[in-house]
């Protein structure tokens, strides 16, 4: 099966990724990503049964820090970078949905 990126899928993925794509972009990404996926598809065909996946280059274990307080950032410095702040907090437009 050759993977195809349909405009519908492009729209679904753009919604997940929070990108307000234009219709032009939807069309061009559908074409370009289908071509990229076509190349990538070669590895879908490989029989890799029994091969363990690698998520990290080296399998380090148990890297910890001690539970000691380190002074953080100055609040004014942090909020100075914010697009909008109010009352010591970051201000955002209304949130329509509850957190999942």
């Amino acid at each position: 099966m050759t993977a195809e990126f349909t405009p519908e899928e492009v729209r679904y993925v753009a919604a997940l990724a929070r990108l307000a794509l234009t219709e032009e972009e939807v069309a061009s990404y559908a074409t370009q990503l289908t071509s990229v996926l076509g190349h990538i598809d070669t590895i879908r065909a490989l029989d890799l049964e029994g091969v363990a996946p690698t998520s990290h280059a080296f399998a380090l274990e148990n890297v910890f820090r001690e539970d000691e307080v380190i002074e953080g950032l100055d609040r004014d410095e942090v909020l100075a970078q914010a697009p909008a702040a109010e009352d010591g907090r970051f201000r955002v437009p209304s949130i329509l949905g509850e957190a999942p």
């Binding site: 919604a15 929070r18 990108l19 307000a20 970078q81 914010a82 697009p83 909008a84 970051f90 955002v92 437009p93 209304s94 949130i95 329509l96 949905g97």
Partner: peptide
């Protein structure tokens, strides 16, 4: 939300996008 560019929109999801 926290730094860099923001393009205003009526709700937070639209603002993100």
């Amino acid at each position: 939300v926290r730094y860099g560019l923001r393009v205003d929109a009526p709700d937070v999801a639209k603002m993100n996008a």
